[in-house]
């Protein structure tokens, strides 16, 4: 008899998992080691709410992707994690430290654990490639010059640009600039690496190079990666876990496989790139015929 009861609870659990794939209660336990724990986050820009009471967990040592249509505040989320913006309410816990409540000095100390790859690369335009990568080392360590040189050359070699060390950022192509920025972001071997739209505006070759680099970096060092992107194929290929964000909250989450098989119309519209669906193609407007006829009244 006890066997039957165990079977029943098993079936119930399986049913619940199938029927409620985005239920956060059931997802909560699936990461055994969480590095960033966002609880009840709300944030608004002016009158426009960006996030309403959002919970997100980032597992340690994995590649987590934050995806969603443009303008849903994906980059904002990275800035919130980096402490560059302060939420209206909620907690952002990095190993138990609540980032919005840190003082200026503590915040700068915590940021030494983070690396960020900006959408534009954000290289310092008045320094050579070498000096850009050396910059975090010079500021935060007191390593001798020979060692800094070795580290910089190793990082540049990893992104394939050791030969470009003496160029200025203005002499680099977009893809090269982003690779240099990646080398700079990993110069201090951060625990957490955040990528803001790493694939946007890259040609297919540069894109492939970047995808491989991100994956290799994550495998070689065991840091946590957070990728913000709307490039579906590239992100699905490397992410371990995906959060899909829209309308101020998480609309779906799961492994790439789970999301590809999800049948919610919102998820399908985004994953398959359909022009019309829950996210409408038309900006809100009055009736089309009425609008056209109004021009005739002259």
């Amino acid at each position: 008899m006890p066997d039957f009861r165990a079977l029943l609870t098993g079936v119930q659990a399986a049913l619940r998992a199938v029927l409620e794939p985005t239920d956060s209660e059931s997802q909560m336990t699936q990461f055994d080691d969480i590095v960033i724990d966002i609880k009840g986050l709300s944030f608004s820009r002016g009158d426009r709410p960006i996030y309403r009471n959002v919970d997100i967990q980032i597992p340690r040592g994995k590649i987590t992707a934050i995806m969603g249509p443009s303008g849903t505040g994906k980059t904002t989320l990275l800035k919130l994690i980096g402490g560059q913006l302060k939420p209206d309410s909620g907690e952002i816990l990095l190993d138990g430290q609540d980032i919005p409540r840190l003082g200026r000095r503590e915040l700068f100390r915590v940021r030494e654990r983070m690396g960020m790859l900006f959408q534009s690369g954000a290289l310092f335009t008045d320094m050579t490639v070498f000096e850009n990568v050396a910059f975090p080392l010079r500021v935060h360590t007191e390593l001798p010059e020979e060692m800094i040189r070795d580290i910089v050359l190793m990082k540049l070699h990893a992104v394939g640009l050791r030969g470009a060390r003496d160029l200025m950022p203005s002499e680099l192509s977009g893809g090269m600039a982003r690779r240099v920025a990646l080398a700079r972001a990993v110069a201090l071997d951060p625990d957490i690496l955040m990528y803001d739209e790493p694939f946007t505006g890259q040609d297919p070759i540069a894109m492939g190079v970047l995808v491989n680099l991100i994956r290799q970096l994550n495998e070689a060092t065991d840091h946590t990666s957070i990728i913000v992107s709307h490039d579906i194929q590239e992100t699905l290929g490397i992410a371990d876990y995906i959060y899909l964000i829209a309308e101020g909250g998480v609309v779906a989450q799961g492994t790439p496989k789970q999301l590809a098989e999800a049948d919610s119309p919102q998820v399908r519209q985004f994953m398959q790139g359909l022009p019309d669906g829950p996210v409408p193609f038309h900006f809100p407007a009055g009736d089309y015929d009425d609008d056209l006829m109004q021009g005739r009244k002259g």
Partner: peptide, 10 residues
Amino acid sequence: EQLASLEMIG
């Protein structure tokens, strides 16, 4: 974003 990236470098 050079100012933002300075901030993120700490």
